[in-house]
Amino acid sequence: MVKITKPAQAGTVESNDIMVTVAPAESGSGIVVELTSPVIKKYGKQICAVIEKTAKDCGIQDALVNANDKGALDCTIEARVKTAIARACAGEAK
């Protein structure tokens, strides 16, 4: 299990991108996603699912994820979440 120790961010607010901010959350709180997106009605569930799955695949149990989506595809969302988590855990790995 990997633990997020500090907030970190990845991505931009350019179109086709997503700005992902991850922050520590209390143990047991799970992955909580706050999503803003112009396509929330058509893809909101899918975006949240990708964020959650990516975080769990990175070994994260608890995190607060704020996602400001600008029409990113799943592969972009996954990359941004991975990067944000790697940055949030950067100190811990050492």
Binding site: E78, R80, T83, R87
Partner: peptide, 15 residues
């Protein structure tokens, strides 16, 4: 650099 290599890897995998 860290963000770009993830993005590129994912683009190659998925597109």
């Amino acid at each position: 650099k860290d963000a770009a290599r993830q993005l590129v890897a994912n683009a190659i995998r998925n597109i």
